[in-house]
């Protein structure tokens, strides 16, 4: 290949590449804006959570209220099988007193061992027992709930998520934003939205038998009827007993159930990060001073 040709090619490489990039970006941009409009239901709003972000910690009083809502309203259908009654006492949780937790445990009937005839023996719950679910098994749960299976609450707040309705090309920005702000409450935001998202079905929506309209539920038809109403649960700490407040409190409780060591983790994290910062600074100075030797 002669040199003139080579030079022309060289000059044009950048042009060629930018043209190619522009073409690809252009088509994808167009495609993205068309697709971003899709999606089910309105965008879920982010809530302020006491446990959100870098400094977030659970609010003990809120977890206690939330447990109250769980116990009065949700527990008749939703289990909490990965938790034990003792967890209600542990630090960083609702921190009930041992007596309160024991009283809660004793309300449950636990099958433990067999009697002389080999029949299962029942006894009241102890702190070391797992939370006793409302149903013996999934089949019983489904038959009692119009065929739907009420999910267990143990990790539910981490098993749900939300999607931002943003143009596709801004998504990387939001990824970075969520990372830097340590946004881990997508599941909580979804659950709160769901609990407050009941309403009447818009005209034209054909509702299934026994189904309820919820604007945040995928497909909008949910088997669970609106569980929370104003004053559904009594609060002893003077907090307003609105349906929204109930939803907020029980969501916080579910967040704790799914991530019980969050308080300790975030506290330790600060100490580790400060340690690493100082360590990095020391090493940087040491590196500079060692490498300074080379210049002599």
């Amino acid at each position: 290949m002669n040199s003139i040709l080579k030079n022309t090619f060289l000059k044009n490489t950048w042009k060629l590449v930018s043209l190619l990039t522009a073409m690809i970006v252009g088509t994808v941009l167009f495609a993205g804006s068309a697709l971003a409009a899709g999606g089910t239901g309105p965008e879920v709003k982010r809530q302020e959570w006491s446990f959100g972000g870098f400094n977030g910690q659970y609010d003990k009083a809120q977890l206690q209220r939330g447990f109250g809502v769980y116990k009065e309203v949700c527990a008749s259908c939703h289990g909490l099988k990965l938790l034990s009654y003792r967890n209600l006492v542990q630090k960083g949780g609702p921190e009930f007193s041992k007596e309160q937790a024991l009283a809660i445990a004793k309300e449950a009937t636990v099958i433990d061992g067999v009697d002389e005839d080999g029949e299962p023996k029942e006894r009241p719950g102890k702190l070391s027992d797992r939370f006793q679910g409302p149903f013996k098994n999934e089949t019983e749960a489904r038959s009692a709930n119009n065929g739907a299976y009420p999910p267990d609450f143990s990790v539910l707040a981490k098993a749900r998520t939300i999607h931002r309705h943003v143009p596709w090309y801004t998504e990387p920005y939001w990824w970075a934003y969520d990372m830097v702000t340590a946004y881990e409450e997508k599941g909580s935001d979804y659950i709160y939205a769901l609990l407050t998202g009941y309403g009447t079905a818009p005209k034209g929506e054909v509702m299934g038998d026994g189904m309820n309209y919820n604007k945040y539920f995928p497909g909008h038809q949910i088997a669970m009827a609106n569980p929370l109403t104003d004053d559904a649960v009594e609060y002893t700490d003077g907090t307003a007993t609105t349906a929204e407040q109930h939803a907020k409190d029980v969501t916080a409780f579910m967040a704790w159930a799914s991530e019980p060591h969050l308080n300790a983790r975030k506290n330790l994290g600060k100490r580790v990060q400060i340690y690493l910062l100082i360590f990095a600074l020391l090493l940087f100075l040491a590196k500079k001073s060692v490498w300074a030797r080379l210049k002599h």
């Binding site: 990790v155 340590a182 881990e184 599941g187 975030k266 600060k270 580790v272 490498w291």
Partner: peptide, 30 residues
């Protein structure tokens, strides 16, 4: 020099571990 960068890397690493441990995961796996 490597040691310095390992510690800088650990800073980022620990950010995820302590503040956003599930950020890189997927909710369906719960």
């Amino acid at each position: 020099k490597d040691g310095f960068m390992v510690v800088v890397f650990m800073l980022l690493f620990s950010w995820f571990v302590f503040y956003a441990p599930n950020y890189l995961g997927h909710s369906d796996n719960f």
